[in-house]
Amino acid sequence: MVAAIASDHAVRGSTLTLREVSHRFDLEGQPLPVLDRISLQVGRGEFVALLGPSGCGKSTLLRLVAGLDTPTAGSLLTEGREIEAPDPSRVVVFQDPTLYPWRTVWSNVALGLEARGLLRTHRGRIEDALRLVGLTGFANAYPHQLSGGMAQRAALARALVNDPKLLILDEPLGQLDSLTRIAMQAELVSLWQRSSFTALLVTHDVEEALLLAGRVIVLSDRPARIKAEVVNSQPYPRHRGDPHFVELRREVFEQLGLDEAW
């Protein structure tokens, strides 16, 4: 079923470059610096995780990458071209699922195809995406009939049907129970391996970051700066008990300032 989604086109992931990106909000007249000169180079088909404390600016950074906002300073490029507006090749799974309450799960997932006029030719992908996230039986349910975790999985399916070149994930598995979470992590990895899109994942879960990503970027408190970068070149599937994995986990916790707990 993963193959069905991935094999339609041989998608090649796109590159992503952040050059000295800074961002500031206005909070009641006071400037609130959120991002502080973030520079990052993500290669084609790479899986990068962003890890940082709550409120440090991760979601803000993802909105900039998606093209929904423009940075106060610095520039973001994909495939060497400046990101100016949202584009369906860069799909976001937001922190909050935000399904349209007036559409069934099926038509929520169909949204991207419908918006681009591809519904007639690519209809089958919706079924595949729903199967991938385990929501086949709920195609005709309305969002208010779903649990929080099911809504999140529906939002994931809504992103996956679009065959993105860059998949931007903002804590997409945050509300899932640990078992479903492990299953979805495995699905994400195998999906990523097959369709070779570039993935940018925000998570609070150190293990999740290390299980999925090739590189984990540790961010500081607000305003977010890149504090450290931990590379994990272990082959997939990775195992939590593996000594090298345990070592990497300790390293990341140390970077987050939690070393004394270990």
Partner: peptide, 13 residues
């Protein structure tokens, strides 16, 4: 909700 527009815009609406 502006989030509704964000979703659709990132999907190519």
């Amino acid at each position: 909700k502006s989030a509704y527009y964000d979703i659709a815009r990132t999907l190519g609406a």
